[in-house]
């Protein structure tokens, strides 16, 4: 199990990388979403908000989320730190995404653009 701070730091790092990738700003323009990240073993929740092509790590939920992502804390940490691709844990059921198919696809592309395969 990862520490709560480790997951938080991984999310901050994810936000920084997102901001440093100009293609993502264009790609997410008009795609305003709140993503709730649930750490199953910690019982903690984190929130990300994409709005106007800018990603922010929120300390409290901003309205009702459009997407919910849940997994073990160590998997979330590694995922947001770019150490693993989301595809494999998603297909094994270790990473759960509750969202529309189109949103899941877009999130997949975001991770692909940030970290490649």
């Amino acid at each position: 199990m990862a520490a709560v701070e480790e997951v938080g730091r991984a999310l901050d790092g994810f936000v920084e990388r997102f901001a440093a990738e100009p293609r993502l700003k264009a790609m997410t323009a008009g795609w305003d979403r709140t993503i709730e990240v649930r750490s199953d073993d910690q019982g903690e929740r984190f929130w990300l908000r994409v709005e106007g092509g800018v990603l922010r790590h929120l300390s409290a939920p901003a309205g009702t989320p459009e997407m919910v992502m849940s997994a073990r804390s160590d998997l979330l940490r590694d995922l947001f730190a770019g150490r693993i691709s989301p595809t494999e844990p998603y297909l094994t059921g270790d990473l759960r995404l509750i969202a529309s198919e189109a949103d899941i696809m877009r999130l997949d592309v975001i991770t692909l653009m940030l970290w490649g395969e």
């Binding site: 297909l91 094994t92 059921g93 759960r96 995404l97 198919e101 899941i104």
Partner: peptide, 14 residues
């Protein structure tokens, strides 16, 4: 038990 859009793939794999 395992709600996933990947459905049968996830269930049979696990």
């Amino acid at each position: 038990t395992l709600p996933s859009a990947a459905g049968i793939r996830v269930w049979t794999l696990r």
